[in-house]
């Protein structure tokens, strides 16, 4: 299928993008790796695509004030090769190779993955697990939204129709940061049937600030809060049991909700092991 007609404009700056988005039915075009597929299938009918790919300054990876900031236009491949991300955002580094395929990662952007907010995608879960935040530019200027408040529903986020996601900020890993990541996909690069991104702080032999975020199990990335508490209490089995309360995955074409629930427990056991390991 071919896309339905739409107009196209190249934004020269973030402000210009925000201005262009004033038109009814306009949408931001970043890497396009999800959006253009939906256009090709005529599943979405934007009136105007506002292409931000040529906006300068959005492709930077920078460390500041104990955070790492990843610009919206940083492509997956650039993030994958970034020593900065490997060092300060090891969870993201672990997740990146699972995203699509090389040609997708060459073009897809970090900001696009977060803004598109596919509930089965890796990066939204990582953002949430790391208690990161999203920097947004809109008609009223810039604002910052915590990840916990960003993902609101199926493909729904805190982004308004005239907003542009300009960066994500993640707390930089320190010596006591522990992360874990695992996903189960039928084929390499597929969206996961179930995945788990996890972060915690090591305190002696115990874990604190445990954040367990499952993906592919609902309409958004889902925090398993009871399981987090159980893990912080050192009780993995209670954590696995708690998933029955924390997760209610619907059936989809790859697995029933029951299978996903079972797999979530398997992943929790595997990721819990990773959380006990100090970074290399």
């Amino acid at each position: 299928m071919k896309p339905a007609p739409f107009d196209y404009a190249r934004a020269r700056s973030v402000e210009h993008a925000v201005e262009l988005l004033g038109r009814e039915g306009a949408r931001v075009l970043a890497g396009g790796q999800s959006l253009i597929a939906t256009l090709n299938m005529r599943l979405s009918h934007p009136s105007l695509l506002v292409d931000i790919n040529e906006v300068t300054g959005l492709d930077r990876i920078a460390r500041r004030n104990g955070h790492i900031e990843i610009g919206a236009l940083v492509r997956h491949v650039q993030a994958e090769r970034s020593a900065e991300i490997a060092q300060t955002a090891p969870l993201v580094a672990r997740a990146l190779p699972h995203i699509g395929h090389p040609a997708i990662r060459n073009r897809g952007t970090i900001g696009g993955s977060i803004a598109f907010a596919d509930p089965a995608a890796e990066l939204p879960a990582c953002l949430l697990a790391l208690d990161g935040e999203v920097e947004i530019a809109g008609p009223a200027g810039k604002r910052t939204v915590k990840a916990d408040d960003f993902f609101q529903g199926l493909f729904e986020t805190a982004l308004g129709p005239r907003d542009v996601l300009i960066a994500i900020r993640l707390p930089a890993a320190t010596h006591d940061t522990r992360v874990g990541f695992a996903e189960l996909a039928r084929r390499h690069g597929d969206y996961a049937m179930v995945g788990l991104a996890a972060a915690a702080r090591a305190n002696g032999t115990k874990l604190t600030d445990v954040r367990l975020v499952f993906f592919g199990v609902g309409s958004t990335p889902v925090r398993a809060r009871d399981a987090e508490a159980a893990l912080a209490a050192g009780d993995l089995e209670a954590g696995v049991k708690a998933l029955a309360r924390n997760l209610d995955p619907p059936d989809d074409v790859q697995a029933t909700g029951a299978v996903k629930k079972h797999l979530a427990g398997v992943l929790l056991r595997r990721v819990a092991r990773q959380l006990t390991e100090a970074p290399q």
Binding site: Q254, A255, T256, A258, V259, H262
Partner: peptide, 14 residues
Amino acid sequence: ITPGVVLQALGKSE
């Protein structure tokens, strides 16, 4: 033979 089919055979999922 999906993962679900295998898990069902093993009695690990209904």
